[in-house]
Amino acid sequence: MRPERATPEERLRAALLARADEVETSPDALPRIRLRTARARRRGAWAMIGAAAAVATAIAAGAVVVADRRADHAPAPATSSSVRPEQSHTPAPSARTVNLPVYFTHDGRLYREFTPVTLADDTDRGRIRAAVERSLRGQAADPDYRTLWPAGVTVRDVGIDGATVTVDLDGVGDPPSDLALQQLVYTVSAVSTYTSIRKADGVRVLGRTLHQAPMADVQAPVWVIEPAQGAVVGKTFTVYVAGIVWEGTVHVRVRDAGGGVVFEQVVQLSAGAPALGEARVPVTLGSGKYTVESFFISPKDSSVQWVDDHEFSVG
């Protein structure tokens, strides 16, 4: 067969045979090939043993995990208590103190104070109940603030139905005044913004569903929010005031322990009557005891009106 007529397979076979003829075979080639084959077999055997051991270890580990999970979900032993077993080991929530807005009265108007209240029950009901109790008892830091509710009145319970809060009172006696009711309503409404209710749409008390009266009708025209009564502040602090006054213009004044004026400024609130306005005034003073006052000047006779004051200290 002539080369030009050979098929591709025949030409490839002839080339391989020619290349093989050129290779010189070593005398020890066959022993070395047999040695490499034996080593490969031994490595394969050890690999199989290692794989089997790994599988056995994994199976054992899996058995431990399954056993642990079964133990976690095993049913608890029966108990005669009415409390479920998982509840019997739940620690009681620890009481904590929070600042809640509480309304009091002074000179026939409502004043708000952020009062530290220790909560044994830190829930919506617990917060509302604690704040209302402080309001009814007149437990304010400012000695000028009072309550219009009679001594001995207590909160029996607080219920929440949607945005309506029901306050069940005991020991009321004579019907309270309208301002006393607003004292309670404003407190509930203010505290509800610190709960999941966000804003109470109505307060049911003594068989009546009440709503907030207009601020201009019941709230004080001017009051100091910060520094709070008895607070200790740094040498640079902020006087925070609010009010419902004509054109929103009030005065902020600070007196030292001897009564001397150490700071005074006319302040423009964020809004004028009948809206509630507020303002923050930065002040820097040396260490000592002071009294901050806020008031407005009557446009009729230029007299000082509705002074609210707090005593505080600069550390």
Results as ranks from 00 to 15, higher is better:
279 A>E: 04
170 D>Q: 12
151 A>C: 14
31 P>T: 06
201 D>A: 14
305 Q>C: 06
141 A>V: 07
266 V>P: 02
98 V>L: 11
223 W>C: 09
307 V>R: 12
28 D>W: 14
207 G>P: 07
192 S>C: 08
10 E>P: 03
84 R>F: 06
79 T>P: 07
27 P>L: 07
202 G>W: 05
97 T>C: 04
225 I>T: 00
108 G>K: 03
119 L>P: 00
70 R>N: 15
226 E>L: 05
126 G>A: 05
306 W>K: 03
117 V>F: 07
82 S>I: 14
306 W>Y: 15
314 V>N: 08
89 H>T: 12
309 D>T: 09
60 A>N: 14
159 G>E: 02
173 G>W: 08
10 E>F: 12
68 D>T: 12
17 L>P: 04
217 D>W: 04
41 R>N: 10
315 G>P: 00
253 R>I: 01
220 A>T: 12
74 A>R: 11
72 D>S: 13
308 D>Q: 03
313 S>F: 01
155 V>A: 04
77 P>V: 09
259 G>W: 01
81 S>C: 06
57 T>A: 08
127 R>V: 04
39 R>S: 14
76 A>G: 09
276 L>K: 08
48 M>V: 14
152 G>C: 01
219 Q>P: 02
5 R>E: 15
229 Q>M: 07
264 E>L: 08
215 M>D: 03
293 E>N: 06
1 M>V: 13
221 P>K: 10
202 G>F: 08
252 V>T: 01
314 V>Q: 00
89 H>K: 13
197 I>D: 08
51 A>W: 15
231 A>E: 04
165 V>D: 00
160 I>F: 02
24 E>I: 14
143 P>W: 08
30 L>Y: 14
281 V>S: 08
164 T>K: 09
196 S>L: 02
300 K>S: 11
296 F>L: 10
54 A>P: 07
144 D>E: 15
19 R>K: 12
167 V>K: 01
60 A>E: 06
1 M>C: 15
171 G>N: 13
299 P>K: 10
249 T>W: 08
40 A>C: 12
271 A>F: 01
35 L>C: 08
275 A>Y: 11
276 L>M: 09
73 H>M: 14
116 P>D: 07
289 K>F: 00
270 S>R: 00
215 M>L: 15
2 R>S: 12
100 L>V: 04
304 V>A: 02
254 V>E: 00
2 R>N: 13
57 T>L: 13
223 W>E: 09
280 R>V: 04
44 G>C: 05
200 A>P: 01
133 E>C: 11
4 E>P: 07
44 G>R: 14
77 P>D: 10
248 G>V: 02
266 V>R: 15
205 V>G: 09
210 L>V: 04
126 G>S: 13
221 P>R: 14
36 R>S: 09
121 D>G: 06
161 D>R: 03
108 G>R: 06
124 D>L: 02
246 W>I: 05
151 A>Q: 12
1 M>Q: 12
146 R>E: 06
305 Q>S: 05
257 A>L: 02
238 T>N: 04
233 V>N: 00
29 A>S: 10
97 T>L: 06
210 L>P: 09
28 D>C: 09
83 V>T: 05
37 T>R: 07
163 A>R: 15
288 G>W: 00
179 L>P: 05
